[in-house]
C-alpha cells in the first residue's frame, strides 16, 4: 500500500475557563482541558495509482485526516506511512514526494506572474527542467494555462487560480497528490476541465490521488473508491458501486397504474419473494430483486392497467445526504 493509516486518532485539547475569579486563577497554574476527538480510530490503505474520495459532512474530520497524511499535523495516536515515509518525522524529505492543494490556501505569489511562481516552485522542489516542461505541457495543452501564463496571480479568476494551484501541485511529478476541496467555488466548465486533467494524470502517470470534496460530481467523475468519514470515524470504505448498493433504501421499480393500487399492492406483497412494496405519490413501488424479474412483474401488474413503469435509484447526492442525516440522528440519540 502506498498510503497506510492505522488506528489514527486526533484529539484537540482546549482549556476550560474557570467560573469564578478564584477558579480562573487556579487554572492559570493547573489548567483543565476539554477534549474533542476530531478523528477516531481511522484505518485504511490506498494502493499506488488509486483515486480515492474522502467525503463526509463539515467537521467530520476530513481535513484533519489530510493534515495528518501531509505531515503538518501529528496524530495523537496511531500510525501513518506514505510512500515509505513517516510524514511527521521525515517531513522535509517527504513533501518532495507529495503534492498538496488546500482549496482555501495558495502556494502562488500574489503579485508575480504565474510563470514566476512556477519557477520558484521548481527551485524549491529541485525539479529537473525536463520534468518541469513535461508536467507543465499537459496543463498548457489541456488546461489553457498559456492564456494567463504571464499575468500576475492577483488578476486571475478563481477558476484560473485553482487551475494553477492544481498544476503547481503536480509540477514535481509527485507520487501522491492530496486535493482538499479543489473545485470549491468553480463554475461548471472549469470544474469539468479540472476533473478531466486530474483523471488524465491519475490514469496516464499513475499518480495516486486522495481528494476531499462536497461536490458529488468530483466524487462520481474522479474516484473509484469512497472513504466516508463522519464524527471522526470511518463509516464506509469501498467502491462507489458498492456504496450505491448498500446505502440508502435500495433500488425499486415504480409503476403508475390505472387500476386498483391497493389490490396490486396486496398481490405483490403476497409474492413468494416477499419483497417490500410501498406507495409513493401516484406510484406503486416494489423493491428490485432478481427473484422478481421485470417480465414477471409486468405480467403480475398487467390486469391493473400499467400506464408507466421505471426503475428508481437514489442519486449519489441523495444517498450521501441520507447517510449524513442518519449520522446526525445517531449522534443526537447517542447524546
Amino acid at each position: 500500500m502506498l498510503i497506510q493509516a492505522e488506528a489514527l486518532n486526533r484529539v484537540y485539547r482546549s482549556p476550560l475557563p474557570g467560573q469564578s475569579w478564584g477558579e480562573r486563577f487556579a487554572r492559570l497554574i493547573r489548567p483543565k482541558w476539554s477534549e474533542t476527538h476530531s478523528v477516531r480510530d481511522v484505518s485504511f490503505g490506498i494502493a499506488r495509482g488509486e483515486c480515492v474520495a474522502l467525503v463526509g459532512p463539515n467537521g467530520a474530520g476530513k481535513s484533519t485526516t489530510i493534515k495528518m497524511l501531509t505531515g503538518i499535523l501529528a496524530p495523537s495516536s496511531g500510525r501513518v506511512s506514505v510512500a515509505g515515509f513517516d510524514p511527521q518525522r521525515d517531513r522535509r524529505a517527504y513533501v518532495k514526494h507529495i503534492g498538496v492543494v488546500f482549496g482555501q490556501r495558495s502556494q502562488l505569489w500574489w503579485d508575480l506572474p504565474v510563470q514566476d511562481s512556477f519557477r520558484i516552485l521548481q527551485a524549491l522542489f529541485a525539479v529537473p527542467e525536463a520534468t518541469y516542461q513535461q508536467q507543465l505541457n499537459l496543463f498548457r495543452r489541456e488546461g489553457g494555462l498559456d492564456e494567463f501564463w504571464l499575468r500576475p496571480v492577483r488578476t486571475l479568476s478563481l477558476g484560473q487560480r485553482m487551475l494553477c494551484e492544481i498544476a503547481a501541485s503536480f509540477l514535481h511529478a509527485p507520487e501522491v497528490v492530496f486535493l482538499d476541496e479543489p473545485t470549491i467555488g468553480l463554475d461548471l466548465e472549469m470544474k469539468a476541465r479540472m476533473r478531466e486533467l486530474i483523471r488524465q494524470i491519475n490514469r496516464d502517470a499513475g499518480t495516486t490521488v486522495l481528494i476531499t470534496s462536497h461536490d458529488v460530481g468530483d466524487i462520481e467523475k474522479l474516484s473509484q473508491r469512497l472513504l466516508l468519514i463522519d464524527h471522526g470515524q470511518l463509516k464506509f470504505d469501498g467502491s462507489l458501486a458498492h456504496f450505491r448498493q448498500s446505502a440508502g433504501d435500495g433500488h425499486w421499480w415504480a409503476a403508475k397504474l390505472g387500476g386498483d393500487r391497493d389490490a396490486a399492492q396486496a398481490l405483490l406483497a403476497g409474492h413468494p419473494a416477499g419483497l417490500a412494496v410501498r406507495h409513493n405519490g401516484d406510484w406503486l413501488e416494489v423493491a428490485r430483486d432478481e427473484r422478481l424479474p421485470l417480465p414477471e412483474l409486468l405480467q403480475l401488474l398487467a390486469p391493473f392497467a400499467i400506464h408507466d413503469i421505471k426503475p428508481v435509484e437514489q442519486s449519489l447526492e441523495d444517498l450521501l445526504h441520507g447517510f449524513y442525516l442518519a449520522g446526525k440522528v445517531g449522534a443526537r440519540e447517542a447524546a
Partner: peptide
C-alpha cells in the same frame, strides 16, 4: 491565517 501550512508542505526550512 494558516498560510504557513502551505509552506510546511514545501521542502524548505
Amino acid at each position: 491565517s494558516g498560510e504557513v501550512a502551505s509552506q510546511l508542505t514545501q521542502p524548505m526550512n
